[in-house]
Design a binder for these strands. Sequence first.
DNA 1: ACGATCCTTGACCGATCGGTCAAAGCACCT
DNA 2: AGGTGCTTTGACCGATCGGTCAAGGATCGT
Lengths: 189, 189
Amino acid sequence: MAGARQFDESQVLDAMMRVFWEKGFEATSIDDLVRATGLQRGSLYNAFGDKAAMFCRALRLYQDEVHASHLHALRGDDPREALTRLFQLQLKSARDARQPRGCMLSDARRICHRLPTTAATETRAAADELEGALFAMFERARAAGRLAATADCRALARFYAAVARGVAGTEPGPLEDIARIGVALLEAA
Amino acid sequence: MAGARQFDESQVLDAMMRVFWEKGFEATSIDDLVRATGLQRGSLYNAFGDKAAMFCRALRLYQDEVHASHLHALRGDDPREALTRLFQLQLKSARDARQPRGCMLSDARRICHRLPTTAATETRAAADELEGALFAMFERARAAGRLAATADCRALARFYAAVARGVAGTEPGPLEDIARIGVALLEAA
DNA sequence: ACGATCCTTGACCGATCGGTCAAAGCACCT
DNA sequence: AGGTGCTTTGACCGATCGGTCAAGGATCGT
């Protein structure tokens, strides 16, 4: 019954991530995690620490598996292509019934003042990454002449980051509309 | 000590609304409401019913006091003016330290599947009102020739509703940027 | 004056919360 | 073979959760 680890840590982390992603930090109970992972309470605490630490590990997995692809979509210096890629990723997530709706990061950001200090700063930093990536992309675009020299890259980044936050939980149909408008408006400017 | 109501119901409702607005439905405990209102548990339950009913009443007050002004901002057929008014309202809220950050409605929308049926449908309906008001405004604008005849009013409404959701909790500085871009992009199109 | 009715109060309920711990067991090192 | 060090297990902890209720007091109609 014991001696060495009886479980695959990455599988367990994946299960924990899905629960936190779906229900958020506060609404997720340890019993939820027990059910989802198949592990016992003691094993969870022994392996990860307390609830905040479990959330942190789950959040880090989310960053690596989900958020990283969003940041990667913003590569290059063509804002139209970059935004299209980002919206396409979000559309794919929205259409995938296996994936929880919403964004684990922006949910975490909103409640991070109730998290322990280290978890809070980590969450804040991660949540600000998208705006940073958007800003960098717009700056590359301006340098490449694909954006007016007078364009306010910071403001554009903040705007599209707000759009990205705002589409969390949206159904695929409306999300298609939003993506189309998001790209069209940028082209018009 | 008793006999007739010892409290001003509207004052109590206002206090409850602020708590629910700040912390959300799940993270708000009855004891939080007891502290915020000054009433005892029994009085709260006697006056309003259960926690979901308290939330409903608070949400209705939010609609009347806060959300209604947002819908009113979208009057007329000039999309530039309407959006500017909406963003100005949000900026004013963000600058007002007495008001909680974020939007009680979009927060409620996200967790409404955990509410009782009646509260859930009420919440959903209220949360969809902004997109409806945006749609109506864009249609008036198109009829008045202020928007291209080919403009997709539904898509535009969905897009700006997403922006409005996405700015929840944003600091005044970034919000100014977002408002400026939001209006500028529409003008360019 | 006197019930009837409503409100307030504070104790109380079972359930669940996050977290702990001793007992027991397996695996590895020497 | 026999410790040693880890994991697993399930019972257990105090705190808090949403919700209830009997007791008691104030107000009103009659």
